[in-house]
Amino acid sequence: MKKTIAILLASTGLIAAIGLPAWSAIRGAVPFERLHDKASATSHDAGAPPVLVSNDDSVGRDHERRLRRGDDNDHDEGDEEDDDDDDGGNASGPAPAGSVAPPNNGLFGTGAMPKVQVN
């Protein structure tokens, strides 16, 4: 019996210790809508014209196509630039230069291997 009462007291104390600060924080918090109203009111009181914080003159840019490596599941986040190229090609990728002769597309003369240099 004593044990039960002790447990009850301890849990009540714990709830009070945790719950009271949380409850008062909730009570004291201003709802987001009111914050917005306050900001508008301040702006109107001062007679200041509303300021456009961001004017993205490139509207429609996001409709442009972009290469996003974030879609790549083969690597972890934070991979460095060109890390994809360290793979030495992948199963579905093309054969890297030097491993096979250039394609016979009529553009290449003798089938000599290309020489590449990046500075």
Binding site: P94, A97, V100, M113, V116
Partner: peptide, 8 residues
């Protein structure tokens, strides 16, 4: 089309 003509 690009076997042998691909690099980093």
């Amino acid at each position: 089309e690009i076997n042998g003509i691909t690099g980093a």
